[in-house]
Design a protein around this nucleic acid. Structure first.
Lengths: 198, 198
DNA sequence: ATCTTTCTTTAGCAATCGCTAAAGAAAGGA
DNA sequence: TCCTTTCTTTAGCGATTGCTAAAGAAAGAT
């Protein structure tokens, strides 16, 4: 009944994801996106709405692919400690991988934003807070199960591991290798409270 | 012999510093800068050269003021461990201070850059690497003085503490309080290797 | 008072920004 | 074969980007 789209929408979204990952939201122009996707602006706007919605969809795709290891590790490991250790180890591999841009899109994708794209900054900040809350929930489980000393500051531990993960992202963008990040992960785990309930 | 400047160059530079700190290099426009400084573009260009040089000068000023605590702590403390602990504690206070934008200008000032301002990104990356190298030097001192177990991976420790500091910057931008960051600093110090030379 | 110098201002440059109207092209229904 | 629909393309919109030419204004030297 009507003409069909001539480009692969998923492939175009993946291309946009990688561009946003490399340079961030504001620094990635529509011209750069359309050139990388091999389409013209009207095709982009027909398929994705506008730049902000394209970014949001790219971030959602990121969370379901490159960034999915976090949710998986937190859901699958038996203890909070094991879950966090796995998140750190997999982040070390993922952030330093040469198959795609370094670091984490959610952490670095919208750091330098003008007032007109503050809502994009807030969107990613919300995702980061969600991740920190998920980490805290697993730590709370360990506390409730007696695997942590009574009175352990679980919110403090969650903030610490969130900070370490964000620092690993920055370090990878500055050139840190997989091995470098694994060492960071290992040292971060050595801060885990010992189980003695003195 | 000639007309003199009608605005305070230092005050204008401080204003630019704060604007860049808040939104980053690319997201801060000349129009925003001149409005905040209370001057017109030709005055800005006559006094500072161009946007890139203004940013570089603002960063230099930042390192001599808000960011000077790092160099001071690393220079003044008797041991590497004490120096790093003091850097972390002062970063917690500085990053969360309500007297100025959150976090660290060197860490967050040029994260999302297009190809045309990649050199600005590289400039800050260089400063971050300098800071990490300064941290490593103090840790090496502790190893040489026998305050760390023989064979300690000092480069790994330096990367870890650099990552924690960068994570603290991100956390503060996401709303973490002084107390939150102090807890991160405390946990990070608990990863310091014990002195026993097994 | 006039000259020289360097500031200030007004005004606007070329280039790019995100985005879109209008026209041409493909695909199925009648 | 024509119609309808939705894609594609070309072309360019108004606004903003970093930056600057040209003119007006202040300050000391002569």
């Amino acid at each position: 009944m009507a003409r069909q789209r001539a480009f692969d929408r998923e492939a175009a979204l993946e291309t946009a994801l990688l561009a946003f990952w490399r340079h961030g939201y504001e620094a990635t122009s529509i011209a750069e996106l359309t050139a990388a996707m091999g389409i013209r602006p009207p095709s982009l706007y027909a398929a994705f709405g506008d730049k902000r919605r394209l970014f949001e969809e790219a971030v959602r795709r990121y969370q379901e692919t490159y960034g999915a290891f976090t949710t998986r590790a937190l859901a699958e490991e038996p203890t909070g400690r094991a879950a966090i250790e796995r998140v750190l180890r997999e982040a070390a591999a993922e952030y330093a991988s040469s198959e795609h841009p370094a670091g984490c899109l959610v952490i670095t994708g919208a750091v330098n934003c003008g007032p007109e794209s503050a809502e994009v900054e807030d969107l990613l900040r919300g995702f980061r807070e969600d991740a920190k809350a998920a980490i805290k929930r697993r730590i709370d489980d360990d506390l409730a199960a007696g695997r942590l000393p009574a009175g352990t500051d679980t919110a403090g531990l969650a903030t610490f591991y969130a900070a370490v993960i964000q620092g690993m992202s920055t370090q990878s963008r500055d050139g840190a290798s997989h091995a470098d990040l694994l060492r960071v992960a290992e040292l971060a785990m050595s801060a885990w409270p010992s189980a003695d309930t003195s």
